[in-house]
Design a binder for these strands. Structure first.
Lengths: 331, 331
DNA sequence: GTGAAAGCGCTAACAC
DNA sequence: GTGTTAGCGCTTTCAC
């Protein structure tokens, strides 16, 4: 069996209390004892059991990030930002993916309930506002990327409405007068906010957005192709398309190219997120950048603050987005 | 404070043992007690503390996957396969990314040492064979995607040498006689195995692979462009390029297109992995598919078998790859 | 500076 | 079928 603190104490001829003190860097240990204990730890290959420690301390210093889908590189980049802050604060970040199903999400939330982790960041959730509010009373949770209307819970997102607006304006500035929109489920708050902003941009410029130029389905990338095919089959096809994600946009571009169009010339396409692939595709993809790293740091910092304090900050934080124009809009 | 098993016992007027029995589905509980306990649990909003349970059981039923880089969608897809098996076996899968640095990898390995998790899957590692062998003696670990020569540790990968060979043959069959190779660090065993296989394919067909047609650097996607630019600047540029990853290949394609070539016609490019983006790019990317889902299931099953038994299986498992031809090779 | 001992929340003998 | 109790490995009073 593996060595325990008792073994170390016995071997070193000191009490478990002293070993514990050494382990935790307490100043009340003589140099001689410390040296002896450290040598013994080394010799036995001892490593403290965190189940015991955490049980006693009632804290794990671990934060769990639950992602609705593991293939979204955006989330992983946000995690990098989280890591960066967490490390300094003595926390570990672990991740789990819910495959966007409620059952799996709940399963992972159990790690919060059963005290395996101290806090959870939800990159989108199937919980409603009421449930989230209840949860936030007893646990430390945060939403990132995807807010929930009416949820009085720590949240970090871009200003999706404004981002949608800015995307619309950017396309209009390129001279487009017939624009289309590829959205997502109506349950996705961010997507509908982007739509609202986009609509506002068109309205501000006296441009109509007829229903046939709006396609909303799931975030599944293939829907980008379905949308584009439909748009291009119209008597009067759009000259610009705004999609609520880069993958939807890329798939739409792919379909447009297949149908013989020169994207960036015959038709402009704009995505959302600025995943690393945007620069690699032909044409490269214009998009709205989400500042992942910054979002990660912010949500991590605020969540750890909440964990360490009994004064809960349930604010809704908004971080600045940025429009990036590349070849897919003719730049 | 949150309710404990004691609170439930007191409120329900039974002993903690009975509550524990209900919690663990023991048959030795009267229906009446069970009902009472469950009601009390519900009423108090009780959720068992797994730190206590796991400490007592000396097991957490959690497996940690450590990924060298979080942006690699391949790893996440492998995790989906792992999830699938793990769920049936009553295990949870969590992930952490090491950013390919030894320090962070070690930090996460601590979760294994300190008993926060029961086992670890390493998607590539900075440990050498000797360290891994030592680790495997005391802990349950597995390697996935990336083996380590001389490591007598449970491993699941594709047959990289054969995959490289098959990629080479596929390109040769298309009529290419001047082929180039984009590799990665020499420390990446999989990359050098793919190179070996590729070289074998050329040799079998009497084709030379001169040093100027080989570019090896990191997996950083930009190196794909650097390599392609160099190749195309040669007096006698290649007509086909094999890259050890899809992102390297995509970046190479991007550069070739920028330089005015029609990829799939003037030059063929083949990647490795079959990430979902392969079908979205223009041209779509020919590649060697790694059966992620299957690899995930397999490594998870074998690792859990090891955890549950004292008979350790340290085999090296190889799963079947598949050549997929798309537009980037003119198909 | 050090040790004895209580207790974190839980499970599993063991006794009845 | 149920309760009592020891103990998982650790930290932290409290006393010396």
């Amino acid at each position: 069996m593996r060595a325990t603190i008792k073994d170390v104490a016995r071997e070193a001829g000191v009490s478990v209390a002293t070993v514990s003190r050494v382990l935790n860097g307490s100043p009340n240990v003589s140099e001689a004892s410390a040296k002896l204990v450290n040598e013994t730890i080394e010799r036995l290959g001892y490593s403290p059991n965190f189940l015991g420690r955490n049980l006693r301390k009632r804290a794990t210093n671990v934060i769990l990030v639950i992602m609705p889908n593991a293939e979204h590189s955006l989330y992983m980049q946000i995690c990098v930002g989280m890591q960066n802050y967490a490390q300094k604060a003595g926390y570990d970040i672990i991740t789990a993916s819910s495959n966007a199903t409620t059952a799996v999400e709940t399963r992972h939330m159990n790690m919060l309930f059963n005290r395996t982790v101290d806090g959870v960041v939800l990159m989108g959730t199937s919980y409603d506002a009421r449930s989230l509010n209840d949860l936030a009373k007893n646990y430390d949770i945060a939403l990132c990327c995807e807010g929930v209307t009416g949820a009085d819970v720590l949240t970090v997102t871009v200003d999706d409405e404004q981002a949608g607006y800015d995307a619309g304006i950017a396309l209009i500035k390129e001279g487009h007068k017939r624009l289309a929109f590829i959205g997502a489920e109506s349950t996705a708050l961010s997507a509908s906010r982007r739509e609202n902003g986009f609509r506002r941009a068109l309205a501000d410029n006296g441009i109509d957005l007829p229903p046939e130029l709006v396609y909303k389905n799931t975030y599944d990338q293939d829907n980008g192709a379905v949308a584009m095919e439909r748009f291009l089959g119209l008597p009067e096809p759009p000259t610009a398309v705004f999609a609520v994600s880069d993958t939807l946009a890329m798939c739409a571009i792919r379909k447009a190219v297949e149908m013989g169009l020169a994207v960036g010339k015959d038709i402009s396409v704009m995505g959302f997120d600025n995943i690393s692939m945007c620069e690699l595709t032909n044409p490269s993809l214009s998009t709205v950048e989400q500042p992942c790293y910054k979002m990660g740091e912010l949500v991590c910092r605020k969540l750890i603050d909440n964990i360490s304090s009994d004064q809960k900050d349930n604010s809704y934080y908004t971080v600045a987005h940025r429009i990036i124009l590349r070849e897919s809009t003719g730049d």
